[in-house]
Amino acid sequence: MNLFSLLDQLSAVDASPDAAPRRQLLRQLGRAGARAAVAALPMALALPAHATPTDTSLDGIRILLQLEDLLVAFYTQALAAPALTASIPTAQRPDFERLLIQQQNHAGFWRSVLSAAGITPPPVRPASGYDFSGRRSNLANPELFPGVMTNYDAFLQLAQQLEDASASIYLGQISAFTNDKQLLEATLRLQIVKARHASHVRTLRRTTAAVASAVKSWPSKVDPAPSPAIVVPSPAGGTAAPVSIYSFEAKETQVVSGTNEVPFLGVLTGPTAVQYSALSEAFDEPLPTRQATALLEIFG
């Protein structure tokens, strides 16, 4: 049973027909105290099944905290894995220690936001509770990401995908905080740190001899495709095959309102003409909530 799902349903049903956002629930909980809310939880079981709340800030916080916990577990496991640490160049180990410390602080931030609203944050799970082989802690399952905790190249490749995805997941949640300027700015500032991490991990891959063709420091169509790639459900839905997280980054058009594409004629003339790949490089793209949630579930 998921505490947040219950809270979500509670707020959706409590709300007037025009569905007050759940950040109001945060406020209400802040006033009423978390105990009262938890005591009321069993009632949620009787809630109508048709409550289908839209994304709001509590959903956003839940996903972003889950993401930060996953990143913390990833670098915690990596820095404690004997074979992997033996293969990480000495100059690079402090990088990953910094990444770990920063993600720990970010997770702490989201926990403090929940606490301040009177909600007991989910406990920190031990890093060993996550499985970055993709086996979902069941040895009978196929190993989706072999060697991640033993081989530096395999580790870097997954780190790149996780950091890229993190920036995209933050971006995907940002509109949940439109009405809360403090959380909005925090979300932007945290997204930026992920983007810096992603850029650096990509730079490390580019400067590592084991990668044959050049990896850019931003997702690019000319990047070698990650193998194995993290795949998430296709936005096409139904039985469509799962897609790489980078399929979302391949957009060459930007739409401002409705279906109006923004013309980029200026850059497509003159000596730098016909560099369409730059159009997708110049914008990071959000990872929608459904895909973000699916990604988080792959590892634990």
Binding site: S199, S217, W218, F283
Partner: peptide, 25 residues
Amino acid sequence: RFITDPRNLVLAGKIVSVEARHASL
């Protein structure tokens, strides 16, 4: 914090993310 339309917020987020990648690089 000065943006009110969520679509503009996402647009800004798409761009600043790439600026951060540049800065890091």
